[in-house]
């Protein structure tokens, strides 16, 4: 098996780790995957990942680090890199092919993605589930479907437009609560609480919470706490959006 130069290998490992962190993988999984890739390429790689930085040591002599950023979720990215590293380990993929794929992913920073309309319809379905729990009549489901789609659309568009992290969720929460109040004042529904509860479901920071718990259990306390704080801030910015709408109207 040909051996990559140390320089190339460290670049490859850093890029892989960066993509995994940006895709929303748990830190211990990132470290594990990178060390496995190093082992299957015949080098001794050590990797340390926090939420905002990735450190790599190759063969006890070359050190590198890269800055990462919190946020972003792309489960497709995690799955793709996972599959590739598995293929690399059983040698159905050559190191050169692996490097070309990683370079391609790193350059465009995106994988196959669903079109926005399908995502919005998915958000509508997510917001219908809580209606079951409260045993609501069927027309609530339909209102909730559309309010959920509107809330998700607003949050998605604003997060693309602005770099300010929590403002989009605040505005989305505000508008969801506003729509609920409008539906009630038009006499279409008898109470707006369940509509709001359903419609905020697509905005819940599910990935951050799940990863935070998993990392806490694996004793990666540092990144776990950062993710907990982030999901708490996301949840409270949605909550304060709703609260301000309820106070004003």
């Amino acid at each position: 098996m040909e051996q990559l130069a140390t320089h190339d290998l460290s670049d490859l490992c850093l890029k892989t780790a960066y993509l995994l962190v940006n895709g929303g993988a748990e830190t211990y999984r990132v470290e594990d995957t990178v060390e496995r890739i190093g082992a299957s390429l015949g080098s001794d790689v050590k990797c340390y990942v926090t939420v905002t930085a990735i450190f790599i040591e190759i063969n006890h002599k070359s050190y590198k680090f890269i800055k990462a950023r919190l946020g972003g979720t792309n489960l497709q990215m995690i799955d793709e890199i996972n599959t590739m590293s598995r293929q690399l380990a059983v040698k159905t993929m050559t190191p050169d092919e692996f490097r070309i794929h990683i370079d391609h992913l790193y350059k465009y920073k995106r994988t196959a993605d669903f079109p926005f309309t399908i995502k919005a319809i998915g958000a509508g379905f997510v917001s219908m589930a809580p209606m079951l729990l409260f045993k609501m009549p069927l027309y609530y489901f339909i209102y909730c479907f559309f309010v959920g789609i509107i809330g998700y659309t607003i949050s998605y568009t604003l997060s693309k437009l602005s770099m300010l992290p929590y403002a989009d969720l605040f505005i989305a929460g505000f508008i969801i609560a506003l729509l609920g109040i409008i539906l009630k004042s038009l006499g279409l529904v008898t109470q707006y609480h369940t509509i709001i509860i359903g419609a905020i479901m697509p905005l819940v920071p599910g990935v951050a919470i799940t990863n935070a718990i998993r990392e806490l259990v694996m004793r990666h306390a540092l990144s776990s706490m950062v993710k907990f704080l982030d999901s708490l801030l996301v949840a409270s910015s949605i909550g304060f959006g709703i609260a301000s709408a309820l106070i004003i109207f």
Partner: peptide
């Protein structure tokens, strides 16, 4: 209704987070 909506809702969130097909 619960079975159908529970499944659809999970698939819906998997679309939002771009899970593999």
């Amino acid at each position: 209704l619960n079975v159908v909506l529970g499944g659809l809702s999970a698939i819906g969130f998997s679309l939002i987070t771009n899970a593999p097909r």
